[in-house]
């Protein structure tokens, strides 16, 4: 897995590439929580376009990010879910709790 961050206005976009599983989800969790807690990002947007696999530990990291963002009053968004990633979020019945967008543009423009 590769992970990188970039800015777009007030938003920070986290680009994730590869599989997210128990081996590397701690790294994604660390980046997400640093952006929210330490950098106080107002809008954190997770780009999952190049993620073809995510397991329950990856989903748990996203849930932790979502809960942290709510506590801090920031936004937490996902976009570009592959069919496999969407299936896992649906199976865990968590797809409804996230703000999910089809594209980066839609996520950044969302009110």
């Amino acid at each position: 897995m590769q992970i990188a961050t970039r800015q777009s206005g007030v938003a920070t976009i986290v680009d994730v590439k590869g599989d997210i599983d128990l081996y590397n989800s701690p790294e994604m969790r660390k980046v997400i929580l640093e952006e929210l807690r330490d950098k106080r990002t107002a809008r954190l947007v997770i780009n999952l376009t190049q993620v073809r696999y995510i397991d329950s530990s990856g989903v748990a990291s996203l849930v932790e990010g979502l809960k942290t963002s709510k506590t801090l009053g920031s936004r937490f968004m996902l976009f570009g879910l592959s069919p496999a990633a969407r299936e896992v979020l649906e199976l865990s019945r968590l797809i409804r709790v996230f703000e999910v967008f089809d594209s980066e543009d839609l996520a950044l423009k969302a009110q």
């Binding site: 989903v59 990291s61 849930v63 979502l66 809960k67 896992v88 865990s92 019945r93 709790v97």
Partner: peptide, 13 residues
């Protein structure tokens, strides 16, 4: 799963 929290999802899956 009604309680949204990290962890405990694997066995459900």
């Amino acid at each position: 799963l009604e309680d949204v929290k990290p962890g405990g999802l694997g066995t459900h899956m």
